[in-house]
Design a protein around this nucleic acid. Structure first.
Lengths: 128, 128
DNA sequence: CTAGATGCAAATCGTTTGCCAGTCG
DNA sequence: CGACTGGCAAACGATTTGCATCTAG
C-alpha cells in the first residue's frame, strides 16, 4: 500500500530540505511554498502525501496548536514545547519542560505524554 | 458588531440548555442535534454563530484536542486542563496547573496564557 | 416598526482521493 | 519494463457568509 517512501525523488528531497532549513513548525502551505523553490511545479497534494509518509516513518512530528491547522517539524530535536505570538501568529520552539506534569493527572491514570503551548507576545512584536 | 446577545431567542435558549444538560465538551454537531430537540428546524449556521457569540461573552470556552475539531463547554468551572486517554479517546478534566509556566518562554517574550493536554491511559482502560 | 437574528444555500478553507501520466530502479 | 510517484482537479468535511425573511422588544 505504498506507505513507505521507497524511492528517492526530487520532491521528497525538496520537502525534507524545507524542514531542515526552517527549524520551526511549518504548515503544509509553508512547506509547499518553500519546497517549490527547489522543485518548481510541486503539487500541494504531494506535500500532504509526503508529510503523511514522513510521519509514519517518525521523521516528522505533528505540532497541534489549539484552533489552528496542524504544523509539522523534524523529529530530531530534543523535547520542547511551543510559544505562539498572538500578534504575528508565528510559532517558536521553547526548550525545557515543567517538571512532574504527570502528577497532575487524576489518581490511577497513567501519563505517557503531553502537549504544552504558551501564548503571548514575541520579543519582536513587543518592540514594534 | 452584534458581539452581544441582545435578544433572548428560542434557539439561543435551546443551545444554552444543551450545554447545561450536557456537562461534556460538545462538538457543534452535538449541540445542533441536542438543541434541535427543543427547537426543531434549528440551523447549523445558527449554532456556529451562537457559539461564537457565547465565546466572546466568555460564557463558553473552547476545548481543543489535537487532530480533532473544536469542542465547547460552559466556562463555569475553575481553571483546568485536559487528559485524553489514548485507548478510549475520552477526555477528562485535570484540576490544577503547573506553576510558573511563563518562565519557560524565551527571554524577552511575554506570556499571557497557556494550554496543557496530558495523554496516557485512564484508570478504566488500565484495568480492562 | 426596526435592528438584530435565523435559515437556507452557496462559498471558503484545509485536506484527501481518483485517475492517468511520468519516473526510478 | 512495471510498480511506485507526482500533478491536477474533483471530492470532502467542517465552518463561514450572503441574502431575503422573520421576530423580539
Amino acid at each position: 500500500m505504498a506507505l513507505q517512501l521507497e524511492r528517492a525523488t526530487q520532491q521528497r528531497a525538496a520537502i525534507l530540505a524545507a524542514f531542515r532549513e526552517h527549524p520551526h513548525p511549518l504548515l503544509p502551505a509553508d512547506v509547499h511554498a518553500l519546497a517549490s523553490v527547489h522543485c518548481p511545479g510541486l503539487g500541494i497534494a504531494t506535500v500532504y502525501r509526503t508529510i503523511k509518509v514522513l510521519l509514519a516513518e517518525a521523521v516528522l512530528e505533528t505540532v497541534n496548536l489549539p484552533g489552528e491547522s496542524a504544523r509539522y517539524e523534524l523529529k530530531d530535536r530534543p523535547h520542547h514545547h511551543h510559544f505562539q505570538c498572538r500578534a504575528c501568529g508565528r510559532v517558536f520552539d521553547v526548550p525545557g519542560c515543567p517538571p512532574s506534569l504527570a502528577a497532575y493527572a487524576p489518581p490511577g491514570f497513567a501519563v505517557d505524554g503531553h502537549e504544552l503551548t504558551l501564548y503571548g507576545r514575541c520579543a519582536e512584536c513587543l518592540r514594534g
